[in-house]
Computed example of a mutant assay.
Amino acid sequence: MIPLTRDRVPGVLVFDVNETLTDMSPLAGRLEDVGLPGHVLPTWFAGVLRDGVALTLAGGWAAFADIAADGLRTLLARLAPTADPERAVAHVLDAFPQLPVHPDVVEGVRALHEAGHRLLTLTNGSAATTRAVLDRAGLTDCFEALLDVQEPRAWKPSPAAYAHAVRTAGVPAAEAMLVAVHPWDIDGAARAGLATAWVRREPGPYPSTMRPADITAAGVADLAR
């Protein structure tokens, strides 16, 4: 791999949203509100990603909210069987548009935008939710497109998802860079021909079985620098 330099960084940056831009920790409180332990948040979210990707691999499709709701119903049946499941599900999922961005995101996104990079988002979640989050953070005008996987009907890391992003941007894959916190997303984008930047928000190592990122940064502001 030829190392990226300042002159070779792609002009189009495609941002993952959940956990990359958004701080999902407030969801733990919503889980506790409905009788679930807050510590199941990572397990639940990983299960949502697993089931969405599994459906894509099998040639199926379902939206993020529907899969997330199914996972919550299962957890409620096991751990909080006295709860009203539909009301509980709505209470948790309604928090997504209200999630804050990580503290480094505002500075980093604005710096990248002001430096002339074209910014897009690509989420397995909802573009409408992304817009609500970015509106609250005052960042919507920094992004030229807010994308989800509804149109390709394929969850990341399917090549079709990344193809949707670069097609929207009107550039070849090699002229775009995915920015994400999840190594599986980085690996998928790299296999689809994009450059990649791993936002390392946790101290764990990058998996040796996946294609490495071109750039590693501690946050979005660090990436901009």
Rank of each mutant, 00 (worst) to 15 (best):
Phe143Ile: 11
Glu144Gly: 08
Glu144Leu: 05
Ala145Lys: 00
Leu147Gly: 02
Leu147Asp: 02
Leu147Phe: 10
Asp148Lys: 14
Asp148Ile: 14
Asp148Ser: 13
Val149Cys: 15
Val149Tyr: 09
Val149Glu: 04
Gln150Trp: 09
Gln150Arg: 15
Gln150Leu: 13
Glu151Asn: 04
Glu151Val: 09
Glu151Gly: 01
Glu151Ala: 05
Pro152Leu: 14
Arg153Glu: 13
Ala154Gln: 09
Ala154Phe: 09
Trp155Ile: 12
Lys156Glu: 00
Pro157Ser: 08
Pro157Ala: 06
Ser158Tyr: 11
Ser158Val: 15
Pro159Met: 09
Ala160Gln: 15
Ala160Trp: 14
Ala161Val: 11
Ala163Met: 13
Ala165Met: 03
Ala165Arg: 01
Val166Gln: 00
Val166Thr: 12
Val166Arg: 01
Arg167His: 03
Arg167Ser: 12
Arg167Met: 05
Thr168Pro: 11
Ala169Phe: 06
Ala169Val: 08
Ala169Arg: 13
Ala169Asn: 12
Gly170Gln: 03
Gly170Arg: 04
Gly170Val: 02
Val171Ala: 03
Val171Thr: 07
Val171His: 00
Pro172Gly: 03
Pro172Tyr: 00
Ala173Ile: 11
Glu175Tyr: 06
Ala176Gln: 10
Ala176Cys: 00
Met177Val: 09
Met177Cys: 10
Met177Pro: 04
Leu178Tyr: 05
Leu178Ala: 05
Leu178Ser: 02
Leu178Thr: 00
Val179Glu: 04
Val179Ile: 09
Val179Tyr: 07
Val179Asp: 09
Val181Ser: 14
His182Thr: 02
Trp184Asn: 02
Asp185Val: 12
Asp185Lys: 07
Asp185Met: 10
Asp185Asn: 06
Asp185His: 14
Ile186Tyr: 00
Ile186Pro: 01
Gly188Gln: 04
